[in-house]
Each structure stands twice: as C-alpha cells, then as structure tokens.
Amino acid sequence: MRVQAFMFYGCAVFFLITDIVYWYWSKDWTGTTALALSIGLAGLIGFYIHFTVRRLERANAGPLYEDDPEGEIADAAGELGFFSPHSWWPLYVGLSAAAITLGLVFGWWLVIIGSVAILMSVIGMVFEYYRGHFAH
C-alpha cells in the first residue's frame, strides 16, 4: 500500500504545479481554488494511507504482503475482516439527511424531525452488530 500513498502524493504535486500554471495564465480564482482543494484532498488521502501502512507494518512486524516484491498471491490468503452482508441503516441515514435538506426549504419543523431521525438512524447503524448487554 506504500505505492498508493506515493501515488496520491504525486497527484498532489501534479495538482500543485497545475494550480500555479493555471493561476498564472488565467487569474481565475474559482479554478485556482478548486485545484488548491484538489491538492489538499490528494495530500490528505496520501497522508492517511502512508500512516495507516506504517501502523500495519508495526503490527505485522514487517512489510505488508502487497509491498513485498517477492510476494505470492497465497500470502494474502485468510480473513481480511468483517464486512456487513446487508444493512438498511445507510438508507435511513440518507433519508433523514434528505429530510433535513428539504426542511431548509419548507420549514424548520422538518429540520427538527430530520435531526431526530438522523440521530436515531446513526445510533442504529453504529450499534447494528453490538452484542453486549444492550443489544437490540
């Protein structure tokens, strides 16, 4: 995954050079701002991947299998984590966010209803697989 981090760092450098050239030739602030945000986003993703890889390498006591030039496909075998097979909670979160957005147009009462609904749906999504004392 280290390659992906440097790929995003390279994108940030490319956007930086492009932003400077674009600003110099056009003097357009909207495009310059959009390219500046692209620099920040590419750098942020690269930073996140870079430090996640460092944390995983420390946990595995060595380089990750995808960074090993002599690695085999079989090195990636095994469980990679838990992935939810299906969940209705993201739909409820999206509908609640849509209700809040429509509330900005039609009235504050819909914003309140949407806020309560999004609070309940986010709690439901977070505790969907909770198996403790308060499991639902």
Rank of each mutant, 00 (worst) to 15 (best):
G46E: 10
T30F: 12
G107Q: 06
A36M: 11
Y65S: 15
L119R: 02
S115R: 03
Y48Q: 14
G103C: 02
L56I: 12
F51S: 09
R54P: 00
T33K: 06
T52W: 15
H136C: 09
W23Y: 10
D68Y: 04
A12R: 01
T33S: 14
V126C: 02
G103M: 01
M1I: 12
Q4L: 14
V13D: 03
V126S: 04
A74I: 12
L64A: 10
A34C: 06
T32E: 05
D75I: 06
Y92P: 00
G114N: 03
F134I: 09
C11H: 06
T32A: 15
L64K: 07
E70W: 11
G94A: 05
E79R: 11
A12G: 07
L56G: 10
W29G: 08
R55Q: 14
G124E: 02
E66Y: 11
D75H: 14
V116E: 06
A36S: 13
G103Y: 02
L91Q: 04
I123K: 09
A135D: 11
A77G: 03
G31L: 02
W29H: 13
V105G: 03
L44Q: 14
G94F: 03
A97F: 06
I49S: 11
W23P: 00
W109L: 11
G103D: 02
P69Y: 13
D68T: 08
T101K: 05
F106M: 07
A76D: 11
G107V: 03
V53F: 08
P85W: 04
I73Q: 13
A12P: 01
A12E: 01
I20A: 05
W109T: 07
L110V: 08
I45C: 09
I112E: 03
Y9C: 01
R55S: 14
L35Q: 04
L119A: 05
W88R: 04
F83D: 08
Y65L: 11
T101F: 11
W88Y: 05
T52K: 15
A98F: 06
P63H: 10
L35N: 01
A135P: 01
V3C: 09
S84R: 12
L37A: 07
W25T: 04
A61M: 09
T30K: 11
R2Q: 13
G78T: 07
Y9H: 05
T33G: 13
M125E: 03
L16I: 02
A98D: 02
F134K: 15
T52D: 15
V105P: 03
S96C: 02
A59D: 15
P63S: 09
F127R: 09
A97L: 13
E72F: 07
S96T: 05
A61D: 14
A76R: 11
Y9M: 06
H133E: 12
M120D: 04
D28Q: 08
G10Y: 01
E72M: 15
M1S: 13
G103S: 02
H133T: 15
L80N: 10
A74S: 14
I100C: 05
T30N: 10
H86I: 04
M120Q: 08
V126R: 06
W108V: 09
L80Q: 08
S38P: 05
F106K: 14
K27Y: 07
S87Y: 01
G46F: 03
F15A: 02
F14K: 04
F15E: 00
D19Q: 07
T33W: 11
S26F: 09
V53W: 11
G31I: 00
E72W: 15
L64Q: 09
S121M: 02
F82Q: 10
